[in-house]
């Protein structure tokens, strides 16, 4: 158990981090998936009394990761937004200051299904349909691609670990043949229970620490 773990994927070293991020030193790129910014505000507008603060907390976690890895690029593997942000939303208030704090980075997003809502917003970011990085293909929806190792999100993989009557459920990195699925980064995102097949590996991310499961 520790907060980060080095792995070799497609012959390259990458670091998994317990705060649900992946760092690829080859291109000095920090990758997270499914931030779902603005989900709390979206729920509140529809009558669910979720307190605000989660978007800010997610930005703070992202800042800590950036300070830790000092990446040259920050890439979000889709679903940057949960829904189209509306005026007065806490995320939009916090975003300019956060950008100023990391002025050297221009966030890049591989477009996900939720991001269609963001069309036409001027946020000074770079949007990609997909992105190739070293041997990797970066996408939102992680379908295998021949000749490349896919890094994606979309699924929000989670796993329930059992030990007798006890059990713990947490987001996981799901390491499959030719595909690695990142856990959702956003603090208010749910998980989708996965069933790893033989030969696949699962690394649990719980409270900032990583637990590779045998």
């Amino acid at each position: 158990m520790s907060d980060s773990l080095a792995l070799t994927l497609a012959g390259e070293t990458v670091w998994l981090h317990g705060d649900r991020a992946l760092f690829y030193p080859g291109d000095s790129a920090l990758l997270v998936a499914d931030t779902h910014f603005g989900k709390g505000a979206f729920l509140r507008r529809r009558g669910l009394a979720v307190p605000g603060g989660e978007s800010r907390a997610d930005l703070d976690r992202l800042s800590i990761l950036i300070e830790h890895f000092q990446p040259a690029r920050l890439i979000v593997l889709g679903d940057f937004f949960h829904h189209r942000p509306s005026r007065g939303e806490p995320f939009l208030d916090a975003w300019p200051a956060w950008r100023a704090r990391h002025a050297l980075l221009t966030p890049e997003v591989v477009i996900g299904n939720h991001d269609r809502h963001a069309e036409g917003l001027d946020l000074d970011m770079i949007w990609h349909s997909h992105l190739d990085l070293g041997p990797f293909r970066l996408v939102h929806d992680p379908y295998p691609v021949s000749g490349r190792h896919v890094l994606g999100g979309h699924l929000h993989p989670a796993y329930r670990l059992h030990g007798g009557a006890d059990s713990v459920r947490a987001p996981v990195f799901w390491l499959r043949e030719g595909v690695t699925v990142l856990p959702a980064f956003g603090g208010l995102t749910g998980g989708w229970p996965i069933r790893p097949a033989r030969g696949e590996k699962v690394v649990m991310a719980l409270d900032g620490d990583l637990y590779p499961l045998p």
Partner: peptide, 13 residues
């Protein structure tokens, strides 16, 4: 949304 209004911006029910 809750007793502390500032915590629940844009809440509507």
């Amino acid at each position: 949304g809750g007793a502390v209004l500032e915590h629940y911006p844009q809440f509507r029910r």
